[in-house]
Each structure stands twice: as structure tokens, then as C-alpha cells.
Design a protein around this nucleic acid. Sequence first.
DNA 1: CAATGTGAATTCTTTCACAGCC
DNA 2: GGCTGTGAAAGAATTCACATTG
Lengths: 198, 198
Amino acid sequence: MVAADRGVATVSSTELAEAAGVNAATLRRDLSHLGTFGTPGTGYEVSRLLACVDEALAVGRDWPIVIAGAGNLGRALACSRGFTTGGFRVAALLDVDPAQVGSVVNGTPVAHLDDLPAVVSRESVALGVVATPASAANDVVGRLARCGVRAILNFAPTVVAVPGDVLVHQVDLAAELQVLSFHLARHAPDGPGPGDPG
Amino acid sequence: MVAADRGVATVSSTELAEAAGVNAATLRRDLSHLGTFGTPGTGYEVSRLLACVDEALAVGRDWPIVIAGAGNLGRALACSRGFTTGGFRVAALLDVDPAQVGSVVNGTPVAHLDDLPAVVSRESVALGVVATPASAANDVVGRLARCGVRAILNFAPTVVAVPGDVLVHQVDLAAELQVLSFHLARHAPDGPGPGDPG
DNA sequence: CAATGTGAATTCTTTCACAGCC
DNA sequence: GGCTGTGAAAGAATTCACATTG
């Protein structure tokens, strides 16, 4: 149970560290980078702590984003909690499929990809998400960059090159799966695991 | 262009490092953990290199997985390149919605969640993916653990507790978005970025 | 007394630089 | 000559431990 839910106004670094599974000293040092707001003998005032973390993460600002690709992944992201809270707001989904354009997903309109410049300009979009097939990713990234989008999150399995100072982060949904299978393989290389190949 | 595509049989650590954007010495040391297979004066034989990396990542084994939740995210994952290649095979999607059960997504059948034990047993599934709403995640993780699934990838925004030695990895789709917005905020705190709140 | 914030010690990672090999 | 693999140096991150404070 989290501190705030217990009606307690303060948390100690030890409590937080145990909950997060990290060392208490490390946690204190990390928090100290955000300023000095702990009380010796008592701990951290929860409301103050939350406010400082939000401040540091630039939560509370308005971050309009666009999601290119209204397929399963694009729609899933548009409905995802993390994409619709914490300051992020999905200004539009974009697709080239006439059957998709004009529909509404989770309150967000699906616009044609050609309307990207208009949407970006109107909503001051600085962040773009690419959830298209790999074949379309390069074109879409180029369009986003030309519209003035300054950071791009790419879910397509393609390494994309951008002209200039646009920030691109690649997301590999299967990477974590590989990590897990790796651990299983180490733990029981010949045990009762997955079936034989073939 | 990648080495193998140029008809070249070997790559040097410098080439690989530049392509990956890392230091050459680091790359050499990392590869040395997989064994010794470079040729001084020449570089790494590409086919040998690929074989060793695949070996180390346990690619080539058969890793049947199940995906719980046949919503947008579950379907997107079932169609995702990384989930259907590299040794992974989606044995089944699972859902409780009667409208979904019985349908087929990208060649994968959607079964009822109650059939989980049968599927896991029949296909020797050791890896589970949770793509359900947060409210269902805890129940699903418990079911997976009880069936003998030994590692779970959780896309639901809930910290789940598992009984025993089951490995759980949490995936936060919005985390990367926060990283990007953080960088934008640092780079131009008051510049022509996102619009004003409100 | 309990818990923070931080010097100092430790541990891990990255990088340099070069002996040895092709 | 060019390149690997690795000992040794440099740099970062983590952890200990304690003076300090409410």
C-alpha cells in the first residue's frame, strides 16, 4: 500500500526504496538532485515530493502529440493511460486509409496523413509517435520532421534517419521478450521448458 | 548499408561501432563475452558473428508464448514482427469477450481465458504477455503463474505481485514519451514548443 | 531518537593503448 | 599494415557511514 493511501503525510527513503526495490542511499541521492525537501528525523512530505517529481518531469505542461498509424498499435496507444494523462494529449491519429479517416478513437479524431502540417501547426505539436508498418515509417518520419515536430517515438522496426536536430527514440516491443527468454534459457538450459525445435 | 549486403564476408569492430553509435573497444569487449571468434587484421566473419549472437540470445529455440487480452494492444503484438520471428511463436491469444473468442488474428486463434491451462500444457508455453486492462491484470498474472508460465511481460499499468519464482517484467509504453518531453523541456524551456496549459 | 544529505570508499563500466596475430 | 582481445587507466554509479538536524 502506498504512503498517501495510509493517511500518512510523510515517507522515509527506506520505505520508498523497499517499495521500488532499490538501495535507500541511492534513492536519497537521486532525490537530492531535485532539490532539498526532506525533513531529518521524519522523512519526505508526500505532497511536496509528488510536486517536485512532477515539476522535474515537466508534468503539468501541455504536450500535444500526434500518432501516425491508426492500426491496432496506434489505436492501443491512443487509448493507453500513459499517453492520455500526465500532460500528454493525443491531438490526432493519422492514417492514409480512407476507411479510417474521419473516425474517432477514444475521443481522438483520425485525420488523413496529408493533414499533418495543418494539425501540427494548429495544435503546436512537438512530439510525434510512429505506429505504422515498417515500410511507411521512413516517409512518415520525414514528414513529421519537415512539419517541425522536434522529437519522435518510433515503434516501427526500422532504423530511421532524420535530417537535423530531430530527436528519435526507437522502441522495440520484442526486446523485453528476448530478455525474458534469455533468463529462462540461463535458468534451465535443458530443463522442462519450451518444446524442441522442429 | 549492412556488411552482409555489400557482399563482404567480414566486418571490423570499428564499422560495427560506428553503425551502432558506440565505442569500438566497448563493442569488442562485449563480443568477447560470447567467445573468441574475431580474426586479427581482418575482423569478424559475418556469418560466424550472426551465429554466435543468435546462440547467445537463445534464438533458434522454439519459444511458444500466449498473449492475454485480444484488444488493440494484444492484436498489435500478435502481428508484431518481433513477436512472430526470432524463435517466438504466438500459441494463442486469450480473452473473455465471447465476440472475440473463436476469431483468428494473423493466423493465431483467440481462445477463452479459461482455456489457458489447456493451451499452456499442450504447447509447453513458458512465456506470457499481459495486454489486458489494468483491472484484469492481477487476475491474469495469477492464472498464468498457476499454469506454470515462468516469465511474464506485463503491458498493463499495474504493479503485479506473483507468488514464487515467476519472473515479471513491466513495460511502460509512455516512459519513452516522458523521456522525450523531458529532453524537449530542457532544450527549450520557454521556447516555441507546446502551447500554454488551459 | 530517527532520518536526511553527502563526503569517502567501493564497485561497476567505459575507454585507452598496446602486445600479439594475420 | 590492420585489427583483435585484453591489461591497465579513467570515469560513473552505487553503497557505506556519519555528521547534522528536527
